[in-house]
Nucleic acid binder design. Sequence first.
DNA 1: ATCCACTATTGAATATGAGTCAACAGTGGC
DNA 2: GCCACTGTTGACTCATATTCAATAGTGGAT
Lengths: 202, 202
Amino acid sequence: MSNPRIRLDVDARRAQLLEHALTLFSAKTFDEVSVADVARAAGVSQGLLYHYFPGKRALFLAALESAADRLVSEAIVTSELPAHAGAAERYASLRAGLDHYLRWVEQRAVAYRFLLRGGFGSDPDVAAVVSRTRDAFVDRIREGLGAGPDDPTARCLGIGWAAMVEVVSLEWLETADLTRCEVVEVLSQAAARLFAPLVMKG
Amino acid sequence: MSNPRIRLDVDARRAQLLEHALTLFSAKTFDEVSVADVARAAGVSQGLLYHYFPGKRALFLAALESAADRLVSEAIVTSELPAHAGAAERYASLRAGLDHYLRWVEQRAVAYRFLLRGGFGSDPDVAAVVSRTRDAFVDRIREGLGAGPDDPTARCLGIGWAAMVEVVSLEWLETADLTRCEVVEVLSQAAARLFAPLVMKG
DNA sequence: ATCCACTATTGAATATGAGTCAACAGTGGC
DNA sequence: GCCACTGTTGACTCATATTCAATAGTGGAT
């Protein structure tokens, strides 16, 4: 670069690099983004990047953590409720919390996608495979359940429950603190509670 | 390699390569597994791999898809129900389906982890960040809800609902076929239905 | 049985991009 | 205006993804 050197203090430079890394890693896969890309975006030599981060992977993780930190500190709020608040009050508080969360998600869409897909799904092809599998799952369940209505809300619930099954299954594999039967119990009851209103309606 | 050349027909070789790829990619990150590793595991030259797959990424995706295909065809079953089956019958069928699913997950744990964490989540550090974020989320909700019991079942439900929130939020970002308010509605009602029994008990 | 065309397979060569390092240049104190 | 300090650079090394011309099993025709 023929640019004159611009000297920043450590924190500013680090933050700037993280910002650019986050943007790039949000748009493309880990291995599609080169260290050179990040450096170029920040208008900085490649070597400097290694002065601030031990390596590409560390840079990626740092960006991920910064996204996570922001999410936790900004998006997840809880209004202080009196100890013996009623159910209705609690419910209202939950809704308010969710609304705040979704507003944040809406605004910081890029960072949110990065955090949750970041692991794997910036890659559209990978996301497609997982998504296709999930849809197949939802479809068969819908058949089995006698296929209620097919409005967006129902679809939403279906996808949500499928995600629940996936994550709970994974968690079960890792920690094994429930028996298979108990997991079946939890998930099927969940389905019953979630879908009962729909099935009745349809 | 000093091995004598072993000649296989296309399908057998391709399947063998996929199998080894799946095993390796399940254990390590995409970029931690080298093409040479896969070739070595299969006892084959690196060049041959490129005869069967256009590149590393394609190999990875093919392995992912094969895992997905197996999941869909083997793990997701639905027993044929009579058209006007009662609710109890449907529920029993759902439970049976889930049990079958979880048995499959148990047996094919490696492939399952690969499929869902696959892209990048074999990476423990990435998984840790996402998991930590989710836990923070669950914790705050628990507080807000007046913290019911903390048995594994409740934890399971909490994680499941959090996963639901995440995936539904992502889906909402992509397709935007619901308003924010509607999403809040779906998710908070889901929470109410899922957690109501617990909160009463606790 | 032997040659032949066909294609699975190899090993070495090339290209791309991650990571290293000694030299350079702003910046603040004397 | 000189000096020590540290943010910054660009050219180097090295690992590994990708390519390709050459090699060797295989099955069929004579």
